[in-house]
């Protein structure tokens, strides 16, 4: 399966361009969509799940324009929106049942088995009778992913799924997604949390102000940052002056001073050692140093 975005542009009625001529191809597996808030990720996703029409350009699924096949696309898609709150007055299982019904699972027995299965797999079976609004934040997210997966969709789109989750919940969530990523499905994970992508995605795209600025593997993105990540032990005074020169991404107190990591060119007079970058380093380095330092395209 292949999703192709061709010259995709979305301009809102106020003139704001949320997406600007985005060309992108997504294939089976887990695909990460990274970008700061307001980069156009949610707009892109809403176009993909047929909730929004692009101003121009096309989205092709296996070569077919999805705007002519909304019903089919909606059948294939499992979608978890960003800031999703449940209908307060439904129980966990009822909500999944409703989603299953809407997805076209008409057999009651089949549906009931599937609901239980999904509740099991997201670890909510014992909370099946709890009202959805009485679940914790993590549970809600899990229930959200469960409703997205209920009809075994071949395209799963999750928008900022880990925002507001505690680390444990976040890891659980990532694992759940990576398990799915092994089957023949496209999973699109939109996030501004770099860790979500580095730990799960084999492909990713980076969006900024509506423009696609990177598309490739996370490793390749990381490679681009090699030689720009440093670790140093510095005094308090030095720390104060360095803070304004480079983005410091970690600070640990050490003796009378600090052990820090920073991204960018090493300023003169600072003793630092190179560190192997990770995706977060690469992302921060990019965001801080603008495009001219980069040779991504």
């Amino acid at each position: 399966m292949k999703i192709e975005l061709k010259n995709l542009t979305k301009t809102y009625s106020g003139g704001f361009k949320a997406l600007d001529s985005v060309d992108l191809t997504i294939t089976d597996g887990m695909f990460g969509l990274l970008g700061p808030n307001g980069a156009g990720k949610s707009t892109l996703i809403r176009i993909l799940v047929t909730l929004m029409q692009p101003t121009s350009g096309q989205v092709l699924l296996d070569g077919k324009d999805i705007s002519g096949y909304r019903k089919e696309i909606r059948k294939m898609v499992g979608y978890l929106p960003q800031d999703f709150r449940f209908f307060a007055k439904l129980r966990s299982w009822e909500f999944l049942d409703y989603a299953a019904r809407l997805a076209g699972m008409n057999s009651k027995r089949e549906r009931s088995a599937r609901v239980d299965e999904m509740l099991e797999s997201v670890g909510l079976y014992e909370f099946r009778n709890r009202m959805a609004n009485k679940l914790s934040g993590g549970m809600k997210r899990r229930l959200g992913i469960a409703q997205a997966l209920i009809a075994s969709p071949s395209i799963i789109i999750v928008d900022e799924p880990t925002t507001g989750l505690d680390p444990e919940e976040r890891i659980r969530f990532r694992n759940l997604l990576s398990d799915l990523g092994r089957s023949e499905t496209i999973i699109i994970l939109s996030t501004h949390i770099v860790g979500d992508i580095s730990s799960t995605c084999n492909q990713m795209a980076l969006l900024n102000e509506g423009t696609l600025i990177y598309h490739g593997t996370p490793d390749h993105l990381v490679d681009q940052a090699k030689g720009f990540v440093w670790r140093a032990e510095i005094s308090q005074e030095k720390y104060d002056s360095l803070k304004s020169e480079v983005p410091i991404i970690s600070t640990i107190p050490s003796g009378g001073g600090w052990e820090i990591q920073f991204v960018g060119d090493k300023p003169a007079g600072v003793e630092a050692v190179k560190v192997d970058p990770n995706l977060e380093h690469a992302y921060v380095h990019y965001m801080d140093n603008k495009l001219e330092h980069w040779n991504l395209k």
Binding site: R46, R74, V77, Y79, P81, F84, F87, L102
Partner: peptide, 13 residues
Amino acid sequence: KLDTTEVIYARPI
């Protein structure tokens, strides 16, 4: 509150 309803809206109805 679009996000809430989008779960339903994205369904094939």
